[in-house]
Design a protein around this nucleic acid. Sequence first.
RNA 1: GCCGGGGUGGCGGAAUGGUUUACGCGGAAGACUUAAAAUCUUUGACCCGAAAGGGUUUGUGGGUUCGAAUCCCACCCCCGGCACCA
Length: 949
Amino acid sequence: MKGYDHKKIEKKWQEFWERNKIYTTLDQVPDKDNFFLLVEFPYPSGNLHVGHWYAFAVPDILARTLRMQGKNVLYPIGFDAFGLPAENAAIKNKLNPREWTYGNIAYMKKQIRSMGTSFDWSRELATCDPEYYKWTQWLFLQLHKKGLVYQKDTAVNWCPSCKTVLANEQVIDGKCERCGTEVVQKMMLQWNIKITDYADRLVDDLDELDWPEQIKESQRNWIGRSEGAEIGFETTENDTITVFTTRADTLFGAMYLVLAPEHPWLELALEHTGMLKNEDEIGRYIALSQRKTELERMTDQREKTGVRLEGVEAINPASGEKMPIYVADYVLGHYGTGAIMAVPAHDERDYEFAKKFDLEIRDVIEPLIIRPSGRLDSFRLDEPAQERTATMALVRHWSEDKYMCLRWIKNDVHGFVTGGIEDGEDAIETAKREIEEETGYSSAEYVESLGGRVHVKFYAAVKNVNRFAHFTPLLFRLKDGSRSVVDERESNLHEPVWVDADKVADYLNREDFQLIWRRVRGDRAYTGGGILVNSNSFDGLDSERARAEITAKFGRPKKTYKLRDWIVSRQRYWGVPIPIVHCKKCGTVPVSDDQLPVLLPDIEDYLPSGEGRSPLAKVDSFVNVTCPKCGGEGKRETDTLDTFVDSSWYYLRYTDPKNEKEFASQEKMDAWMPIDLYSGGAEHTTMHVLYSRFWQKALFDMGLVKDAEPYTRRKNRSLILGPDGQKMSKSRGNVIDPDEVVERLGADTVRLYLAFIGPYNEVSNYPWNPDGVVGVRRFLERVTRTSEMVQEKDVQGLQSILHKTIKKVTDDIPLLKFNTAISQMMTFLNAIEKGKTIGREQWKAFVRILAPFAPHLAEELWREGGNENSVHAEAWPAFDEKYLQDETVTIAIQIDGKTRGEVAIPTNSDKDATEKAAHGAIAARLEGREVVRVVVVPKKLVNFVLKSD
RNA sequence: GCCGGGGUGGCGGAAUGGUUUACGCGGAAGACUUAAAAUCUUUGACCCGAAAGGGUUUGUGGGUUCGAAUCCCACCCCCGGCACCA
């Protein structure tokens, strides 16, 4: 091929493929396995960006390869077409959202076609087509029938100035994006879907999925399952307040209860006038916290506030003690039971609150620290341990704000003075004695206890013994600097060092020292596990067992989640109308199947109506209907569905997009589901992917689909940044326009460049490098020139590298490591150019493996070579094992693990021959040295280990 | 703070126990040209050395191993998720 006119080639073959419908996918093809490759469908914003290319054109490489390898591949595309931007355009530029959207779709289709992707356009869908949203409505009603849909008063973002509900993305820093007014929370009746019913399965089923850990972990965090207990506390009003806790083991340390301001118990109590002595104050506090906007909550100093409920107390079921009850907004109404038992000694937040309100703090857990494995002093779990009662003494300087650390001379480690307590001695005496013995300081004076004991399991490497030590931490202060002489045995071991108070933490490398040090600094809340004290019959148990036993005796096990139900109501025009009729007599009534779809009417005025209702509320002909149940007067629901509902099932519709009787036929879903690979953006990990997993499970439970999980494999895509390494944005002026690059360098170049930029199976950020694109274009130009070098007979010298290249490309594509596949093809091209010739069959193999990457150019080269059929319908070339191994191999020669030379030997050399060759190659270096060991790794290296002198 | 992922030339990256830096970009030198572009050839981690050669190097420090980017421990930094979630 002479010259490379990408414009001509690309246009020609795109038209040819389309005319011949070569990517129209049948549901079943004899002798072919189906493969469903899904990419997230785009929002029709009106213009394609580089990210779209990265999302569609790169997975297309996999689609094309799989087809050549004999799979029947479904690679569909559509448009996620409802949503706010269309409505904003309507309001701002007086455009009809429908026309705006379909106009954008038409334009973007043209752009997408320029990529040369193998999408099956016959299955195209748009969520705003009535033929599509009819089934969105139908499926919503199925969930409704199942009891998964309900209405609830829910807080929405409300702009008091625009008098409208705002979507979360319209709230910028707590302010309305349009007018800048501070957004407040307003309660409105909203449609919700009970996704929380599925929380456990959404977590547990992740284990079975072949997904990257990062994605699974994000979903787990988002769902936020935590396992604990519910415990009931009786009150002096003869009722019960139930709390949720993950630390039932600390029950004896629960000193007060805290209710969230929204807690229903408060509402009831306030109705009983006079029951709460300070009801005015409480009422004011509740009102104040309700008025807090999201903004305030976020920027709050998080200073603890609250009000005690005067005149009522709760009873600790374990200790029987009476305890005060507070209302405080550091407890969240929607999590757990909206009430907690506060254990100030073992929870940071309760500790802070107790300090502020001067409440009693009672230790019930003594820390137990076990040195982790993999260190010299790691506790040896399966060996017996010597128990030891000891003190730990913190010594303050007599005149400066410094504390004494002991530095162990041998390993330069810092700690505090410790010592075993002898029989008949008390801890204070022991500590004073040890301070003097170990450091010479003789004026130590006891200040205070640093709280209860601390238990440590470790291995005392010096004494060679496994220890279980029980330390009593004490604080001392020196009266002056007087010192006696220290015994040499002690002074050889360690020396005292005076450390500034704010630097001490940096010196300590042991957890128990760190812990005691925090106590000196006034942080006494210990949140870890340990051994129970002050807990009656539970004393001496470890936290874990105590948790189980206390839960069994005083409460019941309970799981709770951060995940909240899915609010699907939107007070918007451009969305799927919720197919519900409100009837005075019958309540909320689903629209019957034969009345679907509830069509979205054309309207003139897209502004929301004043009370925060959807613009649809102003359309009388839409609103006023007869009740489907009783035939009486009804009013249509005017909210529309969240667009995440539309996208929760679109993949099912791709299997059967034209079906007028069902959302998809069972047969067609069977043919394609579950999805083999779903590639998309990381931003959809927690919302869209989770919602659609839920949706699939709900349909599964209703018997409408056969898989409980929609996506066998999910990969998140990386981000393409601007050339400056920043996110592309108009304001930065670093946006790369793909249309311009395609015009200049061609679609094949853009595809190949994006595939080459980095591994597609990992998430990272890749800057667009304009020189890099040119480099890839250079590669394709060299390919066209190489096509002039084709001769009839295979070139023997190329066989080995050709087959290695076929193998590497074959292996890397399914792993989505397109970058290394391409680099191997480049290496092969370098080899062709070196010999300036290539055999016809060899060339044909190369063109075929290039075809998925550069489909237009490969098709041109293929036809030019006299082939009649499309290269994309050809079979993928096979590699021959016999060419993969070279006749000679270069092995490294090492001396003491350092590479000192190399030698080429026949590949099939045995160990002796390998060693001999290596020895011969560096004989001079080995002269006069004694070789104590020779390590031979066949085909890799020989390592001579010399006797050390 | 908790959880997950990661840290390799000037840059994107390759190498998952065996010669660190494949492939590409940029840089340098040269060829062709009146010249430039394009193209081609050579070069290409750092330090010492005239060279031969030696030493250092995959965030830092330690360990295991004949041999570590890769395995183990501690720490530092970057990215992502969650976060007053009891």
